[in-house]
Each structure stands twice: as structure tokens, then as C-alpha cells.
């Protein structure tokens, strides 16, 4: 049965979802090793590590979309900027 073919998998998308899955697994292990302490950083709400990851990913998605929508330069810069945003939110958010 072609259970997978209809999903029209492409390598980049597969890599993307594997990365997300790895991130979730990584966060789980990290959380089990050293539980998060909720804190108030630059963001206007008290966050845990998981909250910051979610906000960071959302921010990265929006940065990428903005890059696509506004510039014609290669997407890699947008992706890089998104990654920087994600790290910033994780660290200081």
C-alpha cells in the first residue's frame, strides 16, 4: 500500500520535520536532566524553556516569511536571521 507516496515527501521537508522532532526529543532529555525554572526575561511574560522554544520558532517562521515577502535575496539569509532570532529568544527571552 502506498501509505507514504501520496504524502508527496520531499527531502527538505523531511529534514525539517526530523529537525523539529530532534529538537523536541532534545528538549525532553534536557528537561529530565535539569528541570527548567520559569523566569521573566525580555518577553512580557514568564516563560519556561519550552515556551521560549515555541516563541522562538514562531518568530523564526515569521522572519523567514518576511524575508521571502520583502526581499529577493537568497532564503538562506532569512533562515540564518531566523536562527539568530531563535537563539536570542532562548537565551534572553
Amino acid at each position: 500500500m502506498d501509505l507514504l507516496s501520496w504524502m508527496a515527501w520531499t527531502a527538505p521537508v523531511a529534514i525539517f520535520f526530523v529537525c523539529i522532532a530532534l529538537m523536541l526529543i532534545g528538549m525532553t532529555i534536557w528537561e529530565l536532566r535539569s528541570p527548567t525554572v520559569p523566569r521573566k526575561g525580555l518577553l512580557p511574560l514568564v516563560t519556561t524553556r519550552g515556551d521560549r522554544l515555541f516563541i522562538g520558532l514562531l518568530l523564526a517562521a515569521y522572519i523567514n516569511l518576511a524575508w521571502t515577502g520583502v526581499t529577493d535575496l537568497t532564503q538562506w539569509w532569512g533562515a540564518m536571521l531566523g536562527a539568530v532570532g531563535l537563539v536570542c529568544v532562548m537565551r534572553w527571552g
Binding site: T28, E31, T48, G50, D51
Partner: peptide, 9 residues
């Protein structure tokens, strides 16, 4: 439990 709030959202 681990990730409860995120799961809920």
C-alpha cells in the same frame, strides 16, 4: 507533567 501546558495549547 512534562510538557503539559504545551500539549494543551
Amino acid at each position: 507533567f512534562l510538557g503539559d501546558k504545551h500539549l494543551f495549547f
